[in-house]
Design a protein around this nucleic acid. Structure first.
Lengths: 187, 187
DNA sequence: GAAACTATTTAACAAATGATAAAAAAATAA
DNA sequence: TTATTTTTTTATCATTTGTTAAATAGTTTC
């Protein structure tokens, strides 16, 4: 997905303000398997996915638990770094060869203080992420594992096709074995 | 908690900008049990809790499931209404006699477009809510019910003392009976 | 293509949680 | 206070999920 569309989908900007953001963005490419965010590190950039998919995970004991998937158009953000300039708790791994738009957090924060349109763009950005986070929270709290799997299947069919089941299982809050059982029961 | 401190805790503002917000705020009081947000309704205000506690819940079949608690200093917001001007899915019930600060969403949105400091205050507001939402998501996905109960006990002891256990159980994603068992095992 | 490696499914048993009902404890009202 | 209602705990059994191990299927490498 092109950067103009990604920016506009969040909050439409005047050409002038959009160009201020675009001037701070560079395109980067990484291969499948690249770890773009490391846990316990302050991340200095945010990204938008032009092409490819990614996942965020953290460790619980020795197990990786995936808690986020991103696809074309989605932002890759370590919220602790972005909001509080603190270390994050997550790794982010690219699950395919990826093309990304990179934006330095510091540059964006300077724009927030200078340009009211961009400040509102940043507000909308967090508001939309918040809506997504709440939806996921409700899904985890209200629905059974089977319901969550079916919802993922319906809403993000591309993820299921492109991501291995062990990651999906931990994303759903269950073990890989349990997901296999659920899949067997559905058929 | 006083409104000046609530506003400043989100993002410090100049006197001028803070007064713009404060001019739009009125104080209101409601008794225990009052339903301040109704599901399937577009809410036109947000609130900040001066005194008291509240919970948000939605229905799953016939069961009320509590998914948020608020105490002094916390905002009461129906995100779907606030962000997208759409109907929310939650009721919000006041669990004690409450004193609240009320702010009309429409007035705030006008200020966002006029005052860059307030736009950044609004940005920070959503960012902080997003951090809270992510923390809760991780807690639900990574921790067992027992761990979540112990964390709530540690981080929000006031909630446990002031809220009945059936609400806490659904907040933790388990039944009331299961929470009783967990409490019995801990002692 | 065969061998080696990785991912997924299946099986068996253990542990945790749900559902229902009844008992006990606590809070509220007369 | 006593009676009534609400909240919490306990008990029993069913269901779901976790754990471990083995079998099968699918991929990658040589």
């Amino acid at each position: 997905m092109e950067i103009d569309q990604i920016i506009d989908n969040i909050y439409p900007l005047s050409t002038k303000s959009k160009n201020l953001i675009k001037k701070s963005i560079i395109e980067v490419k990484f291969p499948k398997g690249h770890i773009i965010f490391k846990a316990n590190k302050i991340e200095t950039s945010i990204y938008f996915i032009k092409k490819g998919i990614a996942r965020a995970y953290a460790y619980s004991d020795d197990n990786q638990i995936t808690f986020w998937f991103g696809k074309e158009g989605d932002p890759i953000v370590s919220m602790q770094s972005y909001v509080n300039n603190q270390k994050g708790y997550e790794d982010v791994e690219l699950l395919e060869d990826c093309e990304l738009y990179e934006l330095k957090t510091e540059k964006l924060h300077k724009l927030f203080l200078k340009d009211i349109e961009i400040a509102n763009w940043g507000r909308k950005f967090s508001e939309l992420e918040l809506i997504k986070s709440e939806e996921r929270l409700i899904s985890l709290q209200f629905n059974t594992a089977t319901e969550r799997y079916l919802a993922l299947l319906k809403n993000y069919p591309s993820i299921i096709q492109r991501v291995q089941l062990s990651h999906i299982a931990s994303y759903l809050g269950i073990t890989q074995v349990s997901l296999s059982r659920i899949r067997a029961n559905i058929k």
